[in-house]
Nucleic acid binder design. Structure first.
Lengths: 236, 236
DNA sequence: GAAGCAACTATCTTCGAAAATCCAACCTGT
DNA sequence: ACAGGTTGGATTTTCGAAGATAGTTGCTTC
C-alpha cells in the first residue's frame, strides 16, 4: 500500500476540518489507497490526516451509510469489501440512473447547463490531450475532471433524489474502476465517446444521449469485470 | 414540541452508545418529534440522550448522507426540511423501487422468506386489531411492525443495492407519513390492502403483488399530499 | 438615524485523556 | 495434549474541556 496520503486541497473550500478529512478519506478509499477490507486504525489515521480521533470518527460515520466503510462494534472501521457480484449489482442500477438522469437533464437543461457542460468537456479533453507521462502524474486531476463532466451531463435533471442516488452509485463505480486500473496501464482514452455524448446532449437528442451514455458505462463495467481476479477479498 | 424523547430500546441490541443514540435520534426525527428545519443544539441533545458531544456528532454525521439532517458550517445541525415537491420526488422513486423489489422478492423467495412474511403480517394484524385507544398508546409498536412487514415483502430480492436504496426512501416516506398524521386522527386501517399484498406474494403472483403494493403506496402518498399545508417550512 | 466598531454571549468544533473492550499469549490442572 | 481461565498490551469508544466562530447588544461617530 503506497504511503502517500491525499493532502488538504489547496483550494480548501472545506471550512470544517471534519469535511476536509471526509473528502480526503473518501478520495483515498475510492482510488484504492486503502484496500477493500483493510482495517482503518485510528492511530494511523491520526498521523496521516493530522486530525483528532473524534474528527476521524465523524468522517467515518459519514462514510458508513454511503457504504464505503463498515463498522463492527469494538473492532473499529474497515474499508467495504468489493466483489464481482456487487459490481454487477451496482453497475446495473448505476447505468439505469445515469440514463434516466441524462434524459431528463437534456429535456430540462437551459443555457447555463449547456454552457457548464461544454466547459466541463473542454477541461476533461484538455487533460486527455496531455502526454501519457503527464497524465499519469496528474491523474487525480483527470479523475476530478471526468467526474465533473459526468455530473455536468445530468446536472439539469429536476429530480434531486435521482441525482442523489446517482451520485452514490457513481462513487462506488469509480472505486471499482480506479482499483482495477491501479496496477495496469491506463485504459484507452474515452474521449471520442465523451464527445459524442456531449454532442447529443447539446443537440437535445435526449434518448440518443441516454443510449450513448449507457453504452459508455456498460463498456467500462465490462472492461473492469474482465480484470476481476483482483476483486477477491484482501488478506486480513 | 413534545418533551418526550425516545428511550433506549429495552431489547438494546445496540452494543455501542453511538448506535443507540443514532437509532433514537433517527426515530425522533422520523416521527416528527423534531420538526423539519428545527435546529439541533448540542446542549439540548446532550441532556435528552445522555450522551457526550462527540457521540452525538457521530450520530448526526451518520444521518447527514441519509438526508435526514443538514449541516451548515459553524452553525450546527438542522433537521432536513420537507416540501410537497420533495414528497412527490421521493414518492415516485420509492414506489418504483418497492415494486421492483417485491417482484424480484416473490420470484426468488424460498420457504424461509414466505414464513417470515406470514409472521410479519400476523404481528402487524395483531396490533391493528387492538382498540383505537390502545393502538394510539402503542403507536411506535405499530410503526415498527408496519416497517417489518414491508421489509419482509421485499426481503428476498437478490439485489442488495436495490434494497439499500429502497430502505433510504422508505425512511423519508415514513417521515412524511408520520408528520402528516401527527396532528390528526389515525388514518383508516390498511389491513385489507396489506393482506391482499401478502396473499399475492405467497401465491407467487409477482406482478400482481407489485401492482397492489404500488397502488397501496400511491394512495398513501395522495392522502399525505391532501394534508400538505403543514409542509410549509417551520419558523426559525 | 445609520454605519461602524467592540465587547459579550451563545454555540459549535476540535482534540486527546480515561474507560471499556478485545485479543493473543501464557499459565494450570486434569 | 487440551480445555478453561488469567493477565497484559493494543485498540476502540466515550466524554467534556478548551479553542474558534457567529450573532447580539450597546456604544461612538458622522
Amino acid at each position: 500500500m503506497p504511503p502517500r496520503i491525499r493532502q488538504t486541497a489547496a483550494e480548501a473550500d472545506a471550512v470544517l476540518v471534519s469535511q476536509d478529512v471526509l473528502s480526503r478519506l473518501k478520495g483515498d478509499i475510492l482510488d484504492g489507497h486503502f484496500a477493500p477490507g483493510a482495517r482503518l486504525r485510528f492511530a494511523d489515521l491520526q498521523k496521516s490526516y493530522s486530525a483528532g480521533i473524534g474528527t476521524l470518527r465523524e468522517a467515518l460515520s459519514h462514510l458508513l451509510p454511503e457504504g464505503l466503510v463498515e463498522l463492527d462494534a469494538n473492532r473499529g472501521f474497515r474499508v467495504a469489501a468489493i466483489s464481482a457480484a456487487e459490481l454487477r449489482d451496482v453497475s446495473a442500477l448505476h447505468i439505469e440512473f445515469e440514463r434516466r438522469a441524462i434524459v431528463e437533464s437534456v429535456r430540462h437543461g437551459e443555457d447555463a447547463w449547456e454552457a457548464g457542460l461544454v466547459l466541463a468537456f473542454h477541461r476533461l479533453a484538455k487533460i486527455e490531450r496531455l502526454s501519457r507521462e503527464e497524465r499519469k502524474q496528474r491523474s487525480s486531476e483527470w479523475v476530478a475532471a471526468h467526474r465533473d463532466f459526468h455530473r455536468a451531463l445530468v446536472a439539469a435533471c429536476p429530480s434531486r433524489w435521482l441525482l442523489r442516488l446517482r451520485a452514490q452509485l457513481y462513487d462506488h463505480m469509480e472505486r471499482y474502476r480506479l482499483i482495477s486500473q491501479r496496477h495496469r496501464p491506463l485504459g484507452p482514452a474515452k474521449r471520442a465517446e465523451h464527445e459524442a455524448i456531449r454532442d447529443a446532449a447539446v443537440a437535445r437528442k435526449a434518448e440518443l444521449a441516454g443510449e450513448l451514455l449507457a453504452a459508455h458505462l456498460r463498456e467500462t463495467t465490462e472492461t473492469v469485470l474482465r480484470h476481476a481476479p483482483q476483486f477477491m477479498p484482501a488478506p486480513p
